[in-house]
């Protein structure tokens, strides 16, 4: 299968403590893949490893057919990874508009690139806030801005770490609708979220991570047909 991103037995640690033992996953072009698992099982660490924010100690990461393991994160960004990080990491001292345009780029020369207008059309709420500082936004607005900011670099793969965490139900729907639309436009998406129904609804395939290992991989349908999975790996 021609995968856009492939992780093969990736290992990583924070100083003394080893966090990732054996993470393997794939994302195909135009596919939405979910990363599932309880808190503290290594999902965010996996994302950090993929985006070059954490050095890996073993395994391989292949993006667009090229091994990108331990490449600096700005090169990965240039190659087409767009990240919506956990905690959003909006630049508080930049306005909403500046957050969007600061790093904007269309390196792959896309014919219909993401522009400020397109992002505002996707999240109309942001157009009222263009002149506000990043620090003045609500959590939902911040998340929309983080998604918009990632889109403005015209990525081939969008990675969302906790897509709707801590957001009101209405705002969650806004984000999920946007993701649905992005997927329909052919963008590959790797998403972490606790909203299982939406994940199964929109996502194509999923990987479950348990204690730093990929323990299960399969389609939404396969997940639903194995009711014990939820109890074993995901429930409280």
């Amino acid at each position: 299968m021609d995968s856009l991103l492939r992780l093969e037995a990736v290992q990583a640690s924070y100083g003394q403590s080893r966090i990732l033992f054996d993470i393997s996953l794939t994302i195909g072009t135009g596919e939405m893949v979910g990363l599932l698992g309880r808190n503290g099982m290594g999902k965010t660490t996996t994302v950090r490893a993929i985006t070059g924010q954490l050095a890996t100690t073993g395994g391989d990461i292949v993006f667009k057919g090229r091994s990108v393991r331990n490449l600096p994160s700005h090169l990965l960004g240039r190659m087409g990874m767009g990240l919506v990080p956990e905690g959003r990491r909006i630049f508080p001292n930049l306005t909403v508009r500046e957050n969007l345009v600061a790093a904007a780029a269309n390196r792959s020369g896309r014919s219909e690139p993401w522009t400020l207008d397109r992002v505002l059309a996707l999240f109309p709420r942001l157009s009222e806030r263009l002149g506000n500082w990043g620090s003045q936004l609500s959590g939902g607005e911040q998340q929309m801005l983080a998604v918009g900011r990632a889109l403005m670099i015209n990525p081939d793969l969008l990675i969302l770490d906790e897509a709707t965490e801590g957001l009101a139900p209405i705002v969650r729907d806004v984000i999920w609708n946007a993701l649905r639309q992005l997927k329909s436009e052919g963008l590959a998406i790797l998403v972490i979220d606790r909203n299982l129904r939406q994940m199964m609804d929109v996502g194509d395939r999923h990987h479950i991570i348990e204690k730093g290992r990929t323990v299960w991989s399969g389609s939404s349908a396969a997940f639903s047909s194995e009711p014990t999975l939820k109890g074993r790996f995901l429930s409280v």
Binding site: L36, P169, R194, N195, L196, R197, K230, L234, S235, V236
Partner: peptide, 11 residues
């Protein structure tokens, strides 16, 4: 409430 809304697992 803890699980989000409706009948959902914690991912």
């Amino acid at each position: 409430a803890y699980l989000g809304h409706e009948e959902e697992g914690v991912a």
